[in-house]
Design a binder for these strands. Structure first.
Lengths: 192, 192, 192, 192
DNA sequence: TATGAATGAGTCTTCATTCAT
DNA sequence: TATGAATGAAGACTCATTCAT
């Protein structure tokens, strides 16, 4: 037992490998990748995969949860920059939106898989974390007079969920351009 | 003669029934509905379904094509209203966008299915028709000074393809509100 | 009714067309050709095909029967030549065998189909006709001292049924060369 | 440990069971037996069958390959007896032919299935082995003056491929009697 | 009567999940 | 515990046969 290699460490490492592989495979080959393929990509046998995730649904849920966690981290970092005066709220908000859209890596394919399998959002903690950070960002932007007063966290989520993640970068950039005015105060005032 | 069921008529009716059922089933239960289920929903046997569409891919392609045709009709009607002075271009454009988004009936699920099956857009005629009508609408709006000068047909398509068709009506309405400023001249000028 | 075209004539012509097409299709594409393909090749609709042959089995049986009839004709002609002194029995016998082997047209594929479908040999009349003619040929050859005394009609059938009809002409010719000695008197005496 | 079922051993045993069952089923019920039936006959589930042979074609190819291997073994054993003086070449050759014909077990039905599925002869090694042994047998027989000088390996193959394996033993014996003279030197010389 | 659309049981194959080793 | 072979339900597709027109 004292001989260096911790037993849990392997399990943890396996879990990570599986999660990563699952994300990659689903992204690359669509939501219908087989469990065998994911296992192979992770370098483990199916049995091992099932030890960590009793169901395909569970696996996908975990992948989605990971993604949510990353998004939450990103949102919090963005707000931190606003809080300490490094960044301006509206800019951070759109940049954040942009970054999320850029991450084709774990994208709509994953969400489609989640949807197809009826996954329930598992990790409320991370979701809340993300939600709070975004809300703070929005409030800051509104305080600046940059973000339209009626914008809510749900609006950002709505845009997330409709981002063209599976399209080429130019399309994604253009989408951002088209969508940003809807968030700004002036633009919406401009329409009468 | 008037009470006789026409022979070809039945086939035509079956084709229609299948198309409708396929749209519904795919929309309701996702792209992975079985052909048997579609057939059952259409009230025919699988064999009949396969007589009309030799492949699931073909069936989905046909459903998509139908959808495209309806969109093309809608776009042309919208432009017609602009042409005869009944409607204003920007309004027609956003209303058109709104209508497309409203049609959850044949929506993203269908397109996801199409994507998953690698369907090639078959009906270029209808696609072109839709494209021309939308382009005309945009040009008219730009002539009015309402639509931003750099807006193109592809922008509209981009918004189409990211519309939250599978979300509740309020979300869809909100999405439209958020997205519209990106198309207007003033709003985009308002951003500096 | 007196207007020239006889109604039965068409039916007979159709039957013939179907029979020919069935032979061709089975030969060309194996015993698993669909009834639709046979019907198409015959230039009729499946329904018509089924009017003439209530079952695929029946159709194949009919094709086989046709083949048997042709073989019977051939055997009788061969014996006729022997009877009127035009031909020598052994030569006619081997030539007959050769001709049968040459007819790849309606060949093993048909018989395999027949076998697969459990067809019972239908046309005893033609079979008997062929059997009698071959028997006569054999007896004549034995009277000449050319054909080995123990050769029977069944031997000829055995060779028929094992002829390499689906192989290239050179192989078929070689087969004939290898097989003929077994029928001749001298050759078999030569083995001790 | 001695009473434990070995893990790999099971897989190997399954493979064998499947191969045997496939041979039997195809022989018994023709090339069109369902994979389900073969699996049932082998006492495994279809999935297992497909794990071992990804395709029906592969399965049939494997059955054929097994058969070829057995024939190669037989031919080599026959030649070994000739080489060490235990047997006479012509006798061994015809006995070999006889044995092959006797093996109705894996016979024409299998080859027909192979043909129908477009199987490519996979195991060239075994084919070559068989070919070499048969060639050696022929050469030895020719050296003895027993086998006709123009006989080649292809002749033997030709006879193989036309052997009446699906007929009763008496018919097979008779066929051998009829066919043997074609291979002997004297018999063929006897014909002029 | 000929047509060809409709039927539906059956075929091959896949894949999430279980379980013996 | 990790492995990977086995399971078997389910899906796409075929085709002999029936039947309305």
């Amino acid at each position: 037992m004292t001989q260096a290699r911790a037993p849990r460490a392997d399990a943890v490492r396996n879990r990570k490998k599986i999660l990563v592989a699952a994300g990659e495979q689903i992204t690359a080959h669509g939501p219908d990748v087989g469990m065998d393929e994911i296992a192979a990509a992770a370098g483990v046998a199916v049995g091992t995969l099932y030890r960590h995730f009793p169901t395909k649904t569970d696996l996908v849920a975990a992948v989605v949860a990971e993604y949510v966690a990353r998004v939450a981290d990103d949102a919090e970092a963005a707000f931190a920059r606003v809080a300490d005066g490094t960044g301006r709220a509206l800019d951070e908000l759109t940049a954040f939106l942009g970054r999320v859209v850029e991450q084709s890596a774990t994208d709509r394919a994953v969400k489609a898989a989640a949807h197809a399998l009826g996954t329930q959002p598992a990790n409320h903690a991370d979701e809340d974390r993300a939600g709070r950070a975004v809300a703070a960002l929005i409030r800051a932007g509104q305080a600046d007079g940059d973000v339209h007063p009626d914008v809510t966290v749900n609006d950002i989520y709505l845009l997330f969920s409709t981002a063209p993640t599976d399209q080429p970068p130019t399309a994604r950039a253009r989408w951002l351009t088209l969508v940003t005015p809807g968030l700004t105060a002036q633009a919406r005032q401009a329409e009468s």
